[in-house]
Computed example of a mutant assay.
Amino acid sequence: MEKVMVKRFEGKTALITGAAQGIGFGIAKHLALEGARVLLNDIDPSLLTPAVAEIQNLGAVCVAVAGDSSDPAVIQEMIDTAVKEFKQLDLVVANAGITLFGDFFDYPSADLHQVLKVNVAGTFLLLQAAARQLRSQGLGGSFLITSSVTGHQAHKNLAAYGMSKAALEMLAKSLVLDLSPYKITINTVVPGATATERTLLDKDYETIWSQLTPMGRAAGVEDIAQTALFLLSDAARHITGQSLVVDGGWTVTSPSPE
């Protein structure tokens, strides 16, 4: 008898921000491969077009909404588009974020406000709008936030970014109280050093992090995506308010790349 492969997210609609490249795209692609209808968001429309095409070429259903994921108007457009195109929203991955390095003593206030706006306020407002939609549907669902090991361990010149990521993990814990009555789980995936289009602009990135990581390599997007899919799936339906670190053991010893 031929074995039928069960797709974990068949019939589900997923919204992923910061999804044109890197971790966000990896999560979106794997959700699509497992049956989800996906809505991609990114601030760069030129990157969204090939991302959507790649997922559609897999035979999956994919649409996009370009724009700043911290803009309330863009957030509402994402929610409205998901409902219009797919009738409902089930899964939300708040992945969009911005990293602005800088020495604490000279860190510009404009950079601080930008990091907090995109990483913290944008995530809060996205989840708020999505939660209202899921509450009205009455079908439950799952939220996932992309955090970072910099929210657990100090990194030079990343005080603002690390603070923002730690805040997101506290947000997930806090929202357990609000979301659980509606059968909505919320968790964070916490990547360590991960090889993406952005990080690999540093030609020494993989070499350095392979030496610093107990498992002997930086994470790949696949490592983060597979963890994300578990936390979004029914297999994790009794897991909420938790942060799952995917760093090959780096936070155990936390050697600095400096």
Rank of each mutant, 00 (worst) to 15 (best):
S256P: 04
D204Y: 10
T185F: 04
F86G: 01
D71Q: 11
S243D: 09
Q242T: 13
L47G: 08
N95T: 11
T150P: 00
Q88T: 13
A235Y: 11
L179S: 01
T251A: 01
V52D: 01
Q153R: 12
L144V: 07
D111P: 03
M215P: 02
P50A: 12
A94V: 05
Q128E: 10
L139M: 13
F9V: 04
D103R: 15
S254L: 00
G151C: 06
G11P: 08
E77S: 15
E169S: 11
F104N: 10
M78Q: 09
N95K: 08
T99M: 10
L244M: 12
L139A: 15
N119L: 09
I239E: 05
T150N: 10
I145M: 06
A219S: 13
A225I: 07
G122E: 00
V93I: 15
A160P: 02
G249R: 02
A130K: 01
T227V: 06
L39W: 00
V245H: 00
G102F: 08
G140N: 11
D90V: 02
A131S: 13
G122L: 02
D44I: 15
L48H: 03
E206K: 10
A130T: 04
A32K: 02
S142A: 12
A154I: 07
K3L: 15
E34L: 05
L168G: 04
E77A: 12
F105Y: 15
S148H: 09
P45K: 10
I43H: 05
P45H: 10
W209E: 03
L126F: 05
E197M: 15
L89N: 01
L134Q: 06
L125G: 04
V252T: 03
T227I: 02
T227A: 09
D178H: 09
A172Q: 04
S243G: 11
N57T: 15
K7I: 03
F230D: 01
K117C: 08
T213I: 08
T199P: 07
A218N: 04
G220W: 06
A225C: 12
K84E: 13
F104Y: 14
G162I: 06
L15R: 00
D106L: 11
D68E: 14
D103H: 12
S109G: 07
D71K: 12
G140F: 06
D202V: 10
I27L: 08
A94P: 00
T49Y: 08
S136F: 13
E222Y: 13
E197L: 13
K7G: 01
I239Y: 08
F101P: 05
Q114P: 09
K183S: 15
P255G: 02
L40C: 14
E222R: 10
P257Y: 09
F25Y: 15
L139I: 09
G241C: 11
H155Q: 10
T146Y: 03
G162K: 04
D247G: 00
A66T: 08
H155R: 11
E54M: 13
Q88R: 14
A82T: 06
L47M: 14
K117V: 04
L116T: 08
A60H: 08
Q226N: 13
N57S: 13
G151N: 07
G162V: 09
T17M: 07
I186V: 13
L48M: 07
L144A: 05
F86L: 07
P257D: 14
V92S: 02
G249D: 01
P181K: 12
I75C: 08
Q88W: 09
I145F: 02
